[in-house]
């Protein structure tokens, strides 16, 4: 059963600068027996007392201002950051798409990058080779897959990354903003595939500033503000509160129908 249970989780970052990171401080700081305030490492509370419960089938949008903690929350959910206080219980196979430049080597071909991405997500070489055709068909990259990744446009990289994560049957898909670089045609295709994936047995958490993308992919939302959950509810409710107006108000009937909102 796929689920995420986060209880009273905090993520506190120590901010080391050159001074506090050095051994000199740690060793010499003890001499004299007094600890000055200056030697204490400043801490940023990136996430503050988050309690969250997500279950199978949830398609959650993460909204909030820059620096509100959306990306940090995604990394908490992916297990990269373990909460410094509180707990995070994550059941399911995780597939994150965060920074598209990381874990992709621009000098090697798209095919090889698919393999490395897949290996990072816990697949074997053989399993990835079986999926290459499927990924090639989905991404429409064709012969481009044999070229080095540095020849790809931003949109093509997004296609590749989405192709890999959706091909490996993940249970928890975590997407950070940046996937907006693809064209409308591909987005429609990706939407079908992502929604299908979530319906089969999964969960999607998507952080974005683009309302259009959120409408397409999500049905509930979490509003992050200063490291806390300010609001958690249906996408329409949360966006209305966050934006101060109902974003669905002027949509055509057909669009609403398609998005499952009436």
């Amino acid at each position: 059963m796929v689920s995420i249970e986060v209880r009273n989780a905090c993520v506190d970052f120590p901010i080391f600068d050159a001074k506090t990171r050095s051994l000199k401080k740690a060793v010499l700081g003890k001499v004299g027996g007094k600890i000055s305030d200056a030697s204490r490492v400043p801490i940023i509370e990136a996430l503050d007392n988050i309690t969250l419960s997500l279950k199978e089938g949830d398609r959650v949008a993460l909204v909030g201002h820059n620096g509100a903690g959306k990306s940090t929350l995604l990394r908490l959910l992916s297990g990269i950051y373990e909460p410094t206080r509180g707990t995070a219980e994550i059941n399911g196979k995780i597939a994150p798409v965060f920074d598209l430049a990381v874990g992709m080597d621009p000098e090697i071909s798209g095919l090889e990058n698919i393999l490395i991405r897949g290996l990072f997500l816990g697949m074997t070489r053989k399993e990835m080779q079986e999926r290459v055709d499927d990924i090639a068909a989905f991404t429409d990259l064709g012969d481009y897959l044999r070229l080095p990744l540095r020849t790809y446009s931003a949109g093509m990289r997004v296609r590749l990354a989405l192709g890999v994560v959706t091909s490996i049957d993940p249970e928890i898909l975590l997407l950070d903003e940046g996937i907006g670089a693809v064209d409308a045609e591909f987005m429609a295709k990706a939407r079908t595939r992502l929604v299908d994936l979530v319906r089969r047995s999964g969960m999607l958490v998507f952080a974005s500033h683009s309302d259009e993308l959120l409408f397409e992919l999500c049905d509930t939302a979490i509003w992050m503000d200063e490291g806390r959950v300010r609001m958690h509810g249906s996408l329409r409710e949360v966006l209305t509160a966050y934006k101060g107006r109902d974003p669905f108000e002027y949509m055509s009937h057909e669009t609403l129908e398609r998005l499952g909102e009436r």
Binding site: G79, P83, T87, A88, E89, I90, K93, G122, E127
Partner: peptide
């Protein structure tokens, strides 16, 4: 099936 699969049973993460 996969190489870095988390073992069965809930994994409660805490930076302890």
């Amino acid at each position: 099936m996969s190489a870095v699969d988390i073992p069965p049973g809930p994994v409660v993460a805490h930076a302890g």
